[in-house]
Design a protein around this nucleic acid. Structure first.
Lengths: 247, 247
DNA sequence: CGAACTATTGATAATACTCAATTGCCGTGG
DNA sequence: CCACGGCAATTGAGTATTATCAATAGTTCG
């Protein structure tokens, strides 16, 4: 169990950030390296603080109207809507290197909440500083735009799959898209083997199915030789299956 | 039947643009008015051309990797994925004032296509010009960001509804969200009465249902006194029903 | 060892899809 | 003016999928 709160007090926040293997994530490298020294002219530091939170903690809720930008450094989280009937709809899974609110600088306030799925560490950037740098630094501007575009693509794919897919399609394609994102961040245990700290209940809330369904489908997918989700890992069994996608 | 192609030859493209009642749409007013004269210093015009296309024409497909930004001036269109099995998944409905590719300036190329749903007129902005102005004009930057945020919100709502909703929820909430967007653009026939040029087949491809289902649900919603979709119009019958939403 | 959570299983009910077949509406052309 | 074809909307019967609701194993952690 880790404690919540800032962990910058002993000054190791910065140190961990420098040592972080997500530094090559397009956003971190740009915002921290390019905006500090390289481009020199008039670019200033973006003030940041480091924090941590335990599994299950709420990182952000619709009430919290902050202009701050959070970067997930370590651990997993998820965005979700709290539905009126008490259930929740998980909108996206956040992995290390992701921005918690890619549009925080523009949006009045997001209408979703964000919760930690595992213990997490994250970094909080000042929104005003970031916006200033964005306008001053076309590279940073492009990078953020591309992150937005990637998120939008993923969302579109997700909603298409939810619309036309049956229970099996939904789970299978969700797993594939997640695997693809994990690959991009180097979060691979070995070839076709990924961390997958999601319980069946979580997958159910992502795909809009019941926990019982998820269980059956997961077993089915394993028997079919498509993917194997177990022991906190996702294993892609047969690349041929993966081709079953949209154009 | 209108002809496809540019209609700027007789010079009435600009004229129509000036007379367009979508000019107050946040993007057009900012990009055309603010960036020309008001802020003076160093801001240049964004070069643009005007075009039209007939009902059913493809405005954009994944192959077309252009950095250009299209604004829909008049008529309706939709973004869609062409699925491998021949069906198509409609991702969003575009109404006058919408950007066809909000992230065109960043994205390598969108992986969806866009088709005209009615006869349309649209405006094509040069991506390089636009990007230059974005960096030079914080107001324009904010406006585009907010458009992106609005789109993202709509997409998130859509995907949540597709996940947890049954056939009725999907259609009902889709109609409500569309009505809300139409309101924002002033496209209201009268109180609670909106244009709705979508066939059952289109609604089916949006919601992932079959045409037969859509038909039954639409009739049901009318009997229930929720909404009435007929004769190319959408009528919201009972505001009380509208409250049935997520938090 | 028990408590709490998670995964698994099975029977039943509800829901949505499939597949025609039918109707109504236009526009075309005889 | 009417017959015809094409298209969208509607209807119904039968089938398949998924939700619901328990109830039973496993697991983890104290």
């Amino acid at each position: 169990m880790i404690l919540d709160g800032s962990f910058d007090a002993p000054g190791n926040g910065e140190a961990q950030c420098l040592a972080c293997n997500m530094r090559q994530s397009s956003f971190c490298s740009t915002v921290f390296e390019e905006s500090s020294a390289d481009l020199g002219s008039g670019l200033q530091r973006i003030s940041r603080t480091f924090h941590q939170a335990a599994d299950g903690r709420t990182l952000s809720s619709p009430r919290m109207t902050s202009q701050e930008v959070l970067i997930l450094c370590a651990g997993w989280a998820f965005r979700y809507y709290q539905l009126a009937d008490g259930r929740r709809q998980i909108l996206s899974i956040l992995i290390p290197g992701d921005l918690v609110h890619p549009l925080a600088a523009f949006e009045r306030s997001p209408n979703y909440s964000v919760q930690a799925l595992t213990d997490v560490r994250y970094c909080r950037l000042d929104g005003v500083d970031l916006k200033r740098e964005l306008l001053a630094n076309p590279v940073l501007f492009d990078v953020l735009g591309r992150i937005g575009a990637d998120e939008a693509d993923d969302l579109l794919a997700m909603s298409a799959e939810l619309a036309w897919g049956n229970a099996e399609d939904r789970i299978f394609h969700f797993a594939l898209r997640l695997a693809s994102r994990l690959s991009a961040r180097g979060m691979v245990i070995e070839e076709n083997r990924y961390p997958f700290p999601l319980s069946n209940a979580i997958v159910a809330d992502i795909t809009g199915l019941t926990e019982a369904d998820v269980c059956q489908v997961v077993i089915n997918l394993r028997k079919k030789g498509a993917i194997d989700v177990s022991d906190g890992e996702l294993l892609i069994l047969n690349q041929a299956w993966v081709e079953t996608s949209l154009l």
